[in-house]
């Protein structure tokens, strides 16, 4: 009775990863802590239903993802749709400086050669930079990006949750990828900075 079974011990060990994932998605530490707490409680109380059909981590992440979608849906502070407009204006003025008037890359602004980036996926340092670049995205843009690429939602679902047009969603996602790419190039793939 007083000893935790191995699944419960496993759950506790997963907490750091769960929290890091929730923070990347929500970009709000207090909200992330709440969601992780809810997830742990739901997982603990449902642990008898966890029948080993998936790994414990996969099972807990499926709970976490549902809790994150709920948080994004119900808390009006999660994605501020009106602030997306300001983030867009900032981006557009930056984006335009990369191209000549005819819409082609300005010399020196083309994407640089990155070598073999797949090798970096196994380096812990890379992920610190990657997370920093994700967090460097404008808040609301970053949340939409994480819904797509971390929660793996389809664009239709994101649009429905946030009540935005799909064309708008494509623009936001392009903006996010563009800025993430630029940040990684500057901080990780740039010459001589490793």
């Amino acid at each position: 009775m007083n000893s935790m079974n191995s699944d419960e011990t496993g759950l506790t060990a997963l907490r750091p990863d769960i929290l890091r994932f929730a923070r990347l998605q929500l970009r709000d530490d207090a909200l992330a802590e709440d969601v992780v707490q809810d997830t742990m409680i739901a997982a603990m109380s449902g642990i008898d239903n966890f029948a080993g059909r998936a790994t414990l981590k996969t099972w807990v992440f499926s709970i976490l993802k549902n809790k994150l979608v709920d948080a994004l849906r119900t808390r009006d502070r999660s994605v501020n749709v009106s602030a997306l407009g300001d983030e867009e204006a900032d981006f557009d003025s930056m984006f335009d400086t990369l191209f000549k008037a005819n819409g082609h890359w300005l010399p020196g602004h083309q994407p640089a050669v990155w070598g073999d980036p797949e090798e970096d996926l196994s380096r812990q340092q890379f992920w610190q930079v990657f997370d920093a670049c994700l967090n460097y995205l404008p808040t609301n843009t970053g949340r939409v990006f994480a819904m797509r690429e971390l929660l793996d939602l389809e664009v239709d679902e994101i649009c429905r949750e946030l009540d935005i047009a799909s064309s708008n969603c494509y623009v936001i996602l392009h903006r996010a990828r563009h800025q993430l790419r630029a940040c990684l190039e500057k901080t990780w793939f740039g010459e001589g900075e490793k």
């Binding site: 769960i18 890359w105 994407p111 992920w127 990828r177 990684l184």
Partner: peptide, 23 residues
């Protein structure tokens, strides 16, 4: 330049899929 852009966009997607916190 745009070929590299596409490779790097694909890499970003791969990276998100392989993020170390995920299962």
């Amino acid at each position: 330049g745009c070929r590299r852009y596409r490779e790097q966009m694909d890499f970003l997607h791969q990276a998100c899929q392989h993020h170390p916190v995920r299962p």
